[in-house]
Every structure is written in C-alpha cells, then in structure tokens.
Design a protein around this nucleic acid. Structure first.
Lengths: 160, 160
DNA sequence: CAACTTTCGTTACCTAAGGTAATGACGTAA
DNA sequence: TTACGTCATTACCTTAGGTAACGAAAGTTG
C-alpha cells in the first residue's frame, strides 16, 4: 500500500468558494443540510429491509461494545426504556440478538448479539461502503482529497 | 454581503492527506463513520419549539421559493399528498402559512408563508444551526473553506 | 356541447414507532 | 425485615406517515 503524501492541493480548488460561504453561521446552514441528506441516503443502504433503523443502531452498539443491558442501550440511543424493550424484542425475534441473565443482578438483562446479528452488521457496512465508494470513484482526485480532509475535520467536530 | 472569492487555499492543508486515504474504497469507510457520527450529533440538537421537522422544512421551502401548491410541496418533501395536507393544515392553524386560491386552476391551492412564518424560519434556523456554527467558529479559515467545498461535493453525491 | 377521463386536494381509516403511567421482581438501606 | 429505589416489562395513548376512496374542477373526445 503506497503511502506517499499528496503534494498539497494537486490543483487549485475547482469550485469557487466565496468568503461568505466560510462564515460559521452561513456554512453551518449549508453543511447541516448536505450532511443530513447524505447521511440519510447512506443509511438507506441496508443489508436487509427487514430491519429498522433503530434496530440496526442497537445492533451496531452491541457489535462494538459487547453485551449491554436494555437500560444502557436506552440511554445510548436516547430513547425511553419501553421503546428499547420493543426494539430488543424485535431483534431477539429476528434471531439477531439474544437475552441472557445478568451475572450479579437478577433484575437486569444482558442483550447479546448473535452471529447472525454480526453478519447483518458487516453486510450493512459493506453495502454502505460500496454505495459511497461508487460515488467517490466518479470524483476527481482533488475532490477526494478535499473529502479526506473534511473527514478528519468532521471527526474532530463530532467528538468535541 | 461581501462576496470576494477566497484566494485559493490560504495555506497548504495542515493535515497531511495520504494518497491511500483518497482511494474510493478506503475513503468510503472513513467518510461513512465521520458522516454518520456527525449527522447523528447534529440531529441530536433538535429545536425545542412547537414546530415539527416536516413543518419547518415546508416553511423553509415557502420562504425560499415563494407560494407553492400542496402537490409540488409533497413532491419536494418526498411525502404523499395527504401528509402534506396535514402539514399545511398545521402551519395554517399556527398562523405560519395561509391558503389562497390558484389564479387559473380552481382545483389547486396556493400555500403562502406569513410574516410570522418568516420570523419562525429565521429563529428556528438560528437555533438549529447554533451548535454546528459554534464548532465551525473554532476552525481555521482554511478548514472552513475545506468544509465549504465538501458541502458542495456531498450535495452532488446525495442527489446523484 | 355532452360524456368520459384525469388531476388535485381532501377525508377516512390503518400502521408503525415512540412516550407516559403503572406493575412486578429484585436489590438495598434503615 | 420492612421500606424504598431500580430495572425491565406491560398497557395505553399520541403522533406522523401511508393507502383507499371521494368530490370538485380541468382536459379530452365523440
């Protein structure tokens, strides 16, 4: 894998960016729309249409963080406990997750992802990346470099 | 409003972008994560007002494009006509929009934004963009220019 | 011009997803 | 051990969107 650094902007940015577009207030409005629209489009790409957005989000958390209780899942997803009960029930019903008992507290429940669930997550990621990669392949190198920089900036923004 | 074009990259991009990061497959994976995470974070900053997301979207369209019929609004918002009837009804109820008759076709209806509606758009926009604008203000001008370019590119990707 | 077909907005009814209130089982502190 | 807090769940309600059906107004054709 080559790891040469790109010789700074290969060409001058093709799109003419006005100074006014760089003002935080103005940029925020435009960026927000593009961001949400693109994210929405990417999220549309799923492995199976049988799974809901909220369900996939939970599955994703389980895949990354390991077994979790409905309570902390509800917290993470900014949803009320009864909603999480339903979401978990659907995942269990679909064979993508399983409930098991908590080792020390018998009130609580541990929700665990199944191998089918892991497969679902991998497949969905693959499809989303494929969709994005297809679009990216149509861009110029300079445009992809811009997006690569933007990726870093957005990463900082999201975690700030 | 000043509309001077930014003198190309003010400085060389501070972050070193590797060529490998610009390959569609590689970039897709990184971009997907940053994109979805940031979008999720932005989405979390929801307006605590009386106005719904769909209602705001319609109000925004009316503010930008002038009076429109329920039909074209439904088209623009990717929603079925009955849903748009409800959304428009809510806006009229709240005094943010008004119905008037179409000049040439008496089947159709023209939905117009009121001054209260325009005020609502300004306030809601300011509130919803506040979080993002705050983060953007901490960036350098060059970084904001990069995001402005990325905004354009993402817009094309999402609609392609 | 009269009779049909299409288009537009609306109403009626249904479904999906999330929230609040109440409950039952379990831990914890007085 | 009794009283209280916590966790998941159930029951019920609200909301937003979709489909089917309808009435009024255009357009289309004999």
């Amino acid at each position: 894998m080559p790891s040469l650094t790109v010789p700074a902007p290969v060409v001058a940015p093709p799109s003419a960016i006005k100074a006014s577009q760089c003002r935080p207030g103005t940029l925020a409005g435009e960026l927000r729309i593009s961001l949400l629209r693109t994210a929405r489009r990417v999220r549309m790409e799923r492995s199976s249409s049988e799974i809901t957005d909220a369900q996939y989000s939970v599955l994703h958390a389980l895949a990354n963080l390991g077994p979790l209780t409905p309570g902390v899942l509800a917290d993470r997803e900014h949803v009320q406990p009864p909603s999480m009960t339903r979401t978990v029930a659907a995942l269990v019903e679909a064979g993508l997750a399983a409930r098991s008992e908590h080792p020390t507290d018998r009130r609580q429940v541990l929700v665990t992802i199944t191998t089918a669930g892991e497969q679902e997550v991998r497949e969905t990621k693959r499809r989303r990346d494929a969709w994005l990669a297809k679009r990216l392949a149509d861009l110029t190198l300079a445009e992809r470099a811009t997006l690569a920089e933007a990726t870093e900036i957005l990463r900082r923004i999201a975690t700030a």
